[in-house]
Simulated scan of single mutants.
Amino acid sequence: MVSESALPAGSKQRGFGHGGLRLVLLTLINEQPRHGYDLIKAVEELTSGHYRPSAGMVYPLLNQLVDQGLISAESTALDENKKQVYAIQTAGKKLLTDESLRVEHIFARVRQRAKQPVQVTRAIENFKLAVRLKLGNEVLTAVQASQLTEILDHAVRQIEQL
């Protein structure tokens, strides 16, 4: 794997980056065949609780990977619930080999971000959401724009003083 310091400058992609979850799921399935819920939990563990993909993201992506012939899905009967066990196929292994540098960068980024306290990540996401909602719901008056700018600048100064 690539060390965090070896990441290219400016590689501050959000989350796994475009198409990154697909590669993460393939990598996890390559390690061992898994159920969809197991994959959701594995991603959450991988990110130290910073990210848990929704079932609405994971299952359609798994179906797409099956349709592309990258993984297979086998039905099993467990406790009367039929679950799909996903296993890597030759084409999936080839894709991981072809994308190995990108996979290494994704996992290095994940390891780096997983070191950050979860409460800081939560606070950052809440902060970004609050600003997006404020800017998306209304046109700010000159006074509101000035107040928001003052709040943001003050937060930046406080962070820089840490």
Rank of each mutant, 00 (worst) to 15 (best):
I106D: 06
G92S: 06
Y37F: 11
E45S: 12
A42D: 07
R109E: 07
S54T: 12
I124K: 10
V24K: 09
I124W: 11
F127P: 00
L23I: 08
K82S: 12
E45Y: 03
D153T: 10
I151Q: 06
P53D: 03
T141P: 03
Q112Y: 09
K93I: 05
Q13D: 12
Q68Y: 10
K128W: 03
L62Q: 03
L101I: 12
Q13I: 14
K94Y: 07
L148A: 01
R22M: 13
S100F: 06
P117I: 01
Q84C: 05
L39N: 09
Q32D: 11
T141V: 03
L152P: 02
E45C: 06
H18M: 13
L70N: 02
I151P: 00
N137W: 06
L65N: 03
S72G: 12
V43W: 06
S146G: 03
L46M: 14
N137P: 00
L148W: 00
R111F: 05
A77C: 04
F16W: 05
A108N: 05
P33C: 06
V66T: 09
L39V: 04
R111V: 03
V103T: 13
F16H: 08
A73T: 04
L25M: 11
L101V: 14
T97S: 13
A87T: 11
Q144I: 00
P117W: 00
P60G: 05
H35W: 09
E45L: 13
L148G: 02
L23F: 09
S11R: 04
H105C: 12
G92H: 02
K41D: 15
T47Q: 02
Y37N: 12
Q147D: 14
G69R: 07
A73Y: 02
Q32L: 07
G56N: 04
L70A: 00
L140H: 01
Q84F: 08
Q112T: 05
L62N: 01
E99K: 15
Q144F: 02
G20W: 02
L101H: 07
